[in-house]
Design a protein around this nucleic acid. Structure first.
Lengths: 192, 192
DNA sequence: CCTTTTTATATACAATCAATATAAATGTCG
DNA sequence: CGACATTTATATTGATTGTATATAAAAAGG
C-alpha cells in the first residue's frame, strides 16, 4: 500500500485528476519510480469511498478531452498520510531489472550475443544519464528533498555506467572458451 | 515472466526442489533480488505442465521434513531459457523502496521524526554494507558474472550510504522553519 | 512425552504492472 | 467540409509479483 500514500502526498500540492497525477510523477519522480493508471484510478476510487479524498466533477470549459474528475485531499486523508510518513519503513529495497536478471546467467549463453546486449544496455544508461544531467538545473530549483532524490538518481546512474564499462572489459578479457567445460567455471556458484 | 527463467537458470547448476531454490537465490543473489514461495511453487507446477522441467518424487532417507520433489531442467526447458537469455531485455529498472518513498515527502512532516527514520535507515544500510564486504572473499571465488553482480551490489550500497550521510547534513543545516509557510519551499515541485 | 525448531510444500490474497478499450475535443490535410 | 490522426482523459482486464499463512513431517531438546 505504498502507492496510495504517494498519491495523497501529491495531492498536498494541489487538487489533481488522475491523468495529471501520472504526468506529475513522471516529470518529478520519473527518475526513480513510475506509476500507471491501473493503480491510480482504482486507488482514487477506493480512497474516495474511504473519505481520504474528495471529488468534484469539473466541467471543462474549452478544454480538450472528456470531463475531468478533480480530487482533493481531505482532513482525514491528511491525517492518514502523516501517520504513514512518520511510520517506520518496512521491507528493504526492491530492485528488479530485466537486464541484470539475464546478466548473472550470461555464462550459460553465447558471449557474442551477451556483449551485444551489454552494449545496448550501456547506450541506454548513458542516454538516461545525459538526460539527468540536463535536468539537474531544473531540480536545483525544486525543494530540498526532491532535489536530493534527483541527485541520488544521478549517482546511481553513474555507478551503473561505470560498473558496466568495467564489467564489459573483464568479460572481453576473459579467456575464450570452447563452450563446454569452462561454462561451469564462468558461472560457478557455491555448491551448497 | 522473469522469475520463471531465473528458476530455469538455477536448475542449470543441478536439480533442486523449491525450498533449495529459495535458499540458493538468497545466498548467491540475495544482495540484488529476492524470491518467495508464492512464485516458486506455482511456477514449477506450470513449467512441469509445459514440459520445461521434470519432477521426481524423492523419498528422503533419514532426512528431515516432508518428501521432497526434485525438479530438473529438460531439453525443452534449456531451449526456452537460452531463447530468453539471448532476447533483448524489455523495460527499465524498477526500484521501489519504502524509505525513499517517504523521503521525497519529508518536507510535509515533522523534521525530528524524519531524522530518526533517516538515522535508522543509515544504520541498516551500513550493516548491510559491512555484510557485503565480509562476503566479498566468497564471491571472488564465484564465477565471473556472479562476482560482477556482487560488486555492483557493493557499489550501489556505498552510494546509498554516502548519499544519505550528505543528505542528512543538508537537512540538518537547512534553516529551521516554524512549519507553516516554508513547507511549500521545502518540498516544492514544479507547478505544471 | 511433549514442545520447539528445521525442512518442506502449498495456497490465498493483496499489490503492482502492462496493455488496451472508450470517449471527447481539436488540429490538419486533401 | 469531412475523414483521420492527435491529445487529453477515464476506466478495466489480466498477468505478474509480493506477503502472509496453513499444513505436515521429522529431528532435537528438555
Amino acid at each position: 500500500m505504498g502507492l496510495r500514500y504517494s498519491i495523497l502526498g501529491l495531492l498536498h500540492y494541489r487538487p489533481m485528476h488522475g491523468y495529471r497525477i501520472k504526468e506529475h510523477i513522471e516529470r518529478n519522480f520519473g527518475h526513480m519510480w513510475s506509476i500507471n493508471y491501473g493503480q491510480i484510478y482504482p486507488n482514487l476510487k477506493k480512497m474516495l469511498h474511504e473519505g481520504l479524498v474528495s471529488m468534484s466533477e469539473e466541467v471543462c470549459e474549452g478544454e480538450k478531452g472528456p470531463p475531468r474528475k478533480l480530487y482533493a485531499i481531505t482532513e482525514k486523508g491528511r491525517e492518514a498520510f502523516l501517520d504513514w510518513l512518520a511510520s517506520t519503513p518496512e521491507g528493504g529495497i526492491v530492485l528488479r531489472d530485466p537486464f541484470l536478471m539475464r546478466f548473472v546467467f550470461f555464462g550459460f549463453g553465447d558471449k557474442k550475443r551477451s556483449l551485444e546486449i551489454i552494449d545496448a544496455q550501456l547506450a541506454a544508461w548513458e542516454r538516461q544519464l545525459a538526460k539527468r544531467y540536463a535536468n539537474l538545473a531544473r531540480w536545483e530549483q525544486s525543494g530540498l528533498y526532491v532535489r536530493l532524490m534527483a541527485e541520488l538518481g544521478v549517482r546511481m546512474n553513474e555507478v551503473f555506467v561505470a560498473w558496466l564499462k568495467e564489467a564489459r572489459r573483464e568479460i572481453v578479457d576473459e579467456e575464450a572458451d570452447d563452450g563446454s567445460t569452462v561454462v561451469q567455471y564462468a558461472t560457478g556458484i557455491d555448491h551448497l
